[in-house]
């Protein structure tokens, strides 16, 4: 279960990347378009663009195993969450507000770092009918903030 601080962090203007592997252990990853933590911090939903994530979604359907990285560009604070029960669900229109809010917050995060807003918004441009929702519970959480503690489990989660 994620603590409230980590839950809040995952739902701000962080960069999100979601990965899953195929039977040959080749990973495929896509950018997350936003994240929703629910069930008291036990489960989360990450939204991805279906059209650019066909391989990723197939891998999730086949294995249920995912890795998801959340990183705040301005501070390098980074977490990686692992899950073994991931499922792909249809995107619910009500979650579009979360996606739009996430994109706005990410733009506010990276434009001061020198990124062109048009480029960022193009990376994240999406329509509700092209989104998919990947739901999983975090079986392990790791700090990946660069430094001596990078890779350490957070909150006593078992190492993966």
């Amino acid at each position: 279960m994620l603590d409230s601080d980590t839950q809040a962090f995952l739902q701000t203007g962080v960069s999100i990347s979601l990965a899953a592997c195929n039977a040959a252990r080749l990973a495929c990853m896509s950018r997350g378009m936003g994240c929703k933590v629910f069930d008291g911090g036990r489960r989360m939903a990450v939204f991805v663009k279906r059209s650019q994530s066909l391989e990723l979604l197939d891998n999730i359907a086949a294995t249920g195993k995912v890795a998801c990285v959340f990183s705040l560009p301005s501070s390098n604070r980074t977490f990686q969450l692992k899950g073994a029960d991931a499922v792909v669900q249809p995107f619910e229109l009500v979650d579009m507000a979360i996606v739009n809010h996430h994109i706005d917050e990410f733009v506010q995060e990276v434009v001061p770092l020198g990124m062109a807003e048009q480029v960022v918004r193009t990376v994240f441009s999406c329509t509700a009918d092209d989104l998919a929702t990947v739901v999983f519970s975090a079986s392990a959480v790791f700090s990946q903030t660069p430094g001596p503690k990078a890779g350490e489990p957070v909150g006593g989660a078992a190492a993966s």
């Binding site: 592997c21 252990r25 890795a67 990285v69």
Partner: peptide
Amino acid sequence: GTCDAEGMPNLAY
């Protein structure tokens, strides 16, 4: 993106 022997993916920047 990489993968361990058990098929668990790993991501890093």
